[in-house]
């Protein structure tokens, strides 16, 4: 089932943070939302997650069908990995919390650290628990807000392999924001470019590169992206 957002608008006072944003993401698809700082990426994800309410527009999925993974791990440092997962599984009211926790421990490869306090884990492992919490209710749509921003290259690679596996094997639709456009090019099926609250491009990374290929370096996707923004006045 496709997830749709239609005409989403959000204002903070007189400032328009999002203006008539529409897009869709299919089952098993990875959609990257990229754009400069203040473009409205986190606001859009927060609306999709049900944390913020849109002033206008429609969403095809209620928040309970959406898994949300905030930028900073939203888990408790004094609880163990297992306790964190069990707490959120119970709050999500999943049918068999212990079975779901065991499955997530296996999926994230954290079974051997299950009884360690979260505060003692590395940033990468904390982020894996953070993602696991977002997946507890087995949501058809997973939102990731800059999931790799605090990770080293090796941890980033493992994280994206895990997320890619989710989309490919489990058919989870994944929408993520990132500042790392190379990461978007490598892992996303499509990219959505957001600037000043408006969608200025939707398509595959190849289509974005093609839109800026003339006069530019064909191997530099980040350079193409920056020129693309500049040409459109951002």
């Amino acid at each position: 089932m496709t997830t749709d957002a239609r005409g989403v608008t959000k204002r903070f006072g007189s400032r328009v943070a999002l203006r008539d944003v529409s897009f869709s993401v299919a089952e098993g698809e990875l959609l990257a939302i990229i754009g400069p700082n203040g473009a409205g990426k986190t606001t859009l994800l927060s609306i999709l997650a049900g944390i913020l309410r849109a002033d206008a527009g429609q969403l095809s999925r209620p928040p309970r069908e959406v898994g949300w993974v905030p930028q900073q791990p939203a888990v408790y440092g004094k609880l163990s990995v297992r306790e964190n997962l069990r707490l959120f599984a119970r709050l999500e009211k999943v049918a068999d919390p212990d079975a779901v926790v065991a499955r997530m421990l296996e999926q994230t490869g954290l079974g051997d650290r299950a009884d360690d306090e979260l505060g003692t884990l590395s940033g990468g492992n904390r982020q894996r628990v953070n993602i696991a919490v977002g997946l507890l209710a087995d949501p058809p749509l997973l939102l990731l807000d800059e999931p790799s921003s605090s990770l080293d290259p090796r941890q980033r690679e493992r994280l994206w392999e895990f997320v890619d596996g989710l989309a490919r094997r489990a058919g989870t639709a994944v929408v993520f924001t990132t500042h790392n456009v190379a990461e978007a090019e490598r892992w996303a099926d499509r990219v959505l470019v957001l600037a000043d609250g408006e969608v200025i491009f939707t398509g595959t990374p190849g289509e974005l590169r093609a839109a800026e290929i003339e006069g530019g370096d064909a191997t530099d996707f980040e350079g193409a992206f920056v020129r693309f923004l500049r040409e459109r006045g951002h």
Partner: peptide, 13 residues
Amino acid sequence: EEQAYGRLVRGLV
């Protein structure tokens, strides 16, 4: 501080 507030109030509690 644990960033858990947003996760909790988006329908869990």
